[in-house]
Computed example of a mutant assay.
Amino acid sequence: MKIQINTDKNIEGHARLENYFSGELEKSLARFEDKITRIEVHFGDENGEKFGLNDKKCVLEVRIANLQPLTVTEHADTLEKAFSGALAKAKKSLTTTFEKMKAH
């Protein structure tokens, strides 16, 4: 499972940020590891320098072997909250997808 983290020009993408979020993804999605080929994380700050509520955005694109990519988006007031919300949505969608596949 390859993990790629992207940030827009308003967010500094440094090694600590990448290590933290990569580790969280690997931990949280470990049970799907054999089915996921790649995960792309896109962080953005929609207001730039200006303050705004829920202006941080996290988009997770999960590429699953032999299936269409799964994409979820979450807005929050911090990157960490946006990430954890998007991760929760992704886990729920992956669980539902693979449970439906088992049923058929």
Rank of each mutant, 00 (worst) to 15 (best):
M1W: 05
M1A: 06
I3L: 09
I3N: 01
I5D: 00
I5V: 04
N6D: 14
T7G: 10
K9A: 07
K9F: 12
N10H: 11
I11D: 08
I11E: 09
E12W: 07
E12A: 15
G13T: 11
A15G: 13
A15N: 12
N19M: 10
G23L: 01
E24R: 02
E24N: 08
L25P: 00
L25F: 01
E26G: 14
K27L: 12
K27Y: 14
K27G: 07
S28A: 15
S28V: 10
L29I: 07
L29N: 02
A30G: 15
F32D: 00
F32W: 04
E33R: 14
D34S: 15
D34N: 12
K35T: 10
R38T: 14
R38C: 14
V41S: 01
V41Y: 00
H42P: 02
H42D: 09
F43A: 05
G44Y: 05
G44Q: 01
G44K: 03
G44N: 04
D45H: 13
D45C: 09
N47R: 07
N47A: 15
N47L: 11
E49L: 15
K50D: 10
K50A: 14
F51W: 13
G52L: 10
G52Y: 06
G52W: 08
L53G: 09
L53V: 11
N54H: 05
K56V: 00
K56H: 02
K57E: 11
V59K: 06
L60I: 02
V62G: 04
R63A: 11
N66S: 11
L67F: 15
L67A: 15
L67Q: 14
L67N: 13
L67R: 13
L67V: 10
Q68K: 06
L70P: 01
L70W: 03
T71D: 05
V72E: 05
T73P: 03
T73S: 03
T73N: 00
T73Y: 04
T73Q: 06
H75K: 15
H75R: 09
H75N: 06
A76Q: 02
A76S: 03
A76H: 06
T78A: 08
T78C: 07
E80P: 00
A82K: 00
F83P: 00
F83G: 00
F83N: 00
F83C: 03
S84Y: 13
S84T: 08
G85H: 09
A86Q: 01
A88Y: 09
K89W: 03
A90Y: 03
A90V: 02
K91A: 10
K92S: 09
S93A: 07
S93E: 10
L94E: 03
L94G: 04
L94W: 06
T95A: 14
T95C: 13
T95E: 12
T96F: 11
T96I: 04
T96H: 09
T96Y: 12
T97H: 13
T97W: 12
T97R: 13
F98V: 07
F98K: 05
F98P: 07
K100M: 07
K100Y: 14
K100F: 05
M101H: 11
M101C: 07
A103G: 09
H104Y: 10
H104L: 04
